[in-house]
Design a protein around this nucleic acid. Structure first.
Lengths: 179, 179
DNA sequence: TTGGAAAGTCAACAAGGCTGCCCTATCGTC
DNA sequence: GACGATAGGGCAGCCTTGTTGACTTTCCAA
């Protein structure tokens, strides 16, 4: 359907701008694409997690701890946007199972600095490789220009605060205030 | 960080192709962007759903029933990719609350054809408007070319079957086998 | 020394996935 | 007309992962 958006009978607006990509129909497709793609996006790691009795929440914790070793529980809470109680359950399992190392902060001994153990890093790698394989295939298939657009739209969709956080992580992946 | 991907010290591959967009670092950012954007994407309708004691599952059912009035329970199950029992709980609530109308199929009386009532359509509109507002803003912000790339990558990320289903819906939104 | 932040714990609850099993109504076919 | 397959509904019980609320312990800093 090359002429999507014409169903409402509106001609292209004056001024030379082609705003057909903003029609309800196009937006609806974007919404559905987002839903279907996200489902696929999580499905590969989910299979692995199922095997070992973990869930997505464990994966997320492993991911962000891996990306930023030594981050505190509070920082992790902020990134994940969940409650302390909810994270705690997951974190406790990971620590008890020897995947995450929680050590008392040097600067502030109330804080816990989180790191992956070798075992945790191995699982994280396994999970993220499954996820990356799909993402990489999609990237390769779509090409660099499409990928740029993909990232642009996703960033524009985030909440202001999240986007700021996300973008700040681009330039300094490991440079938090955590020594 | 314009030079992302150079951290592994690899030069651009020979052959003139610039594959820097396929580095682990770029892929990782795509993964995180997907996570953060999806969270934002669901947050607006979630607020409304919370008010009235519904969840995302109700929203999804309303969305797909609205898009394809008269679809059967089995079709909806296939689109959503959940079990009958899981959907049933949600569907029962929607029918009891007078948002969805379930009538016996004419062609096959075993089937139930699902439609939104006026009340259901009103809620669906309210929910999808909240979601569309964000998506539309992101689209406008990123521009048509970025949106094309966005859709391209999302589609490439889907499972084969889902993508086929998704694409078939483009040309014939209401043309199922359901007379 | 004292207030408050950080971290952790326990309890209870809800949404929404899942499996397993059973039931009815209906359809198509032998 | 009987029988198997299909569509759908319902019940029980499980899990993960989110939530509130209340409480304690630890520890830094004023």
């Amino acid at each position: 359907m090359q002429h999507a958006g014409l169903r409402d009978g509106l001609p292209a607006p004056a001024g030379g701008e082609n705003l057909l990509f903003l029609t309800d129909e196009q937006i609806r497709r974007g919404i559905e694409a987002m839903y279907f793609a996200y489902r696929a996006f999580t499905s590969d790691p989910d299979l692995i997690l199922d095997e070992i009795g973990y869930g997505r929440a464990h994966h997320r914790a492993l991911h962000f701890i891996n990306r930023d070793p030594g981050l505190t529980v509070t920082s992790l809470l902020e990134v994940l946007g969940v409650t302390k109680q909810s994270l705690n359950r997951v974190l406790r399992a990971l620590i008890e199972d020897g995947l995450v190392d929680s050590r008392v902060g040097r600067r502030d001994r109330r804080e816990r600095q989180l790191r992956l153990t070798d075992k945790g890093a191995a699982l994280e790698r396994r999970l993220s490789e499954a996820q990356r394989a799909r993402m990489k295939a999609a990237y390769r298939n779509a090409g660099p220009q499409a990928v740029a657009g993909f990232r642009q739209v996703l960033e524009a969709m985030m909440d202001r605060d999240t986007r700021a956080q996300f973008q700040s992580l681009l330039d300094a992946p490991t440079a938090g205030a955590r020594g």
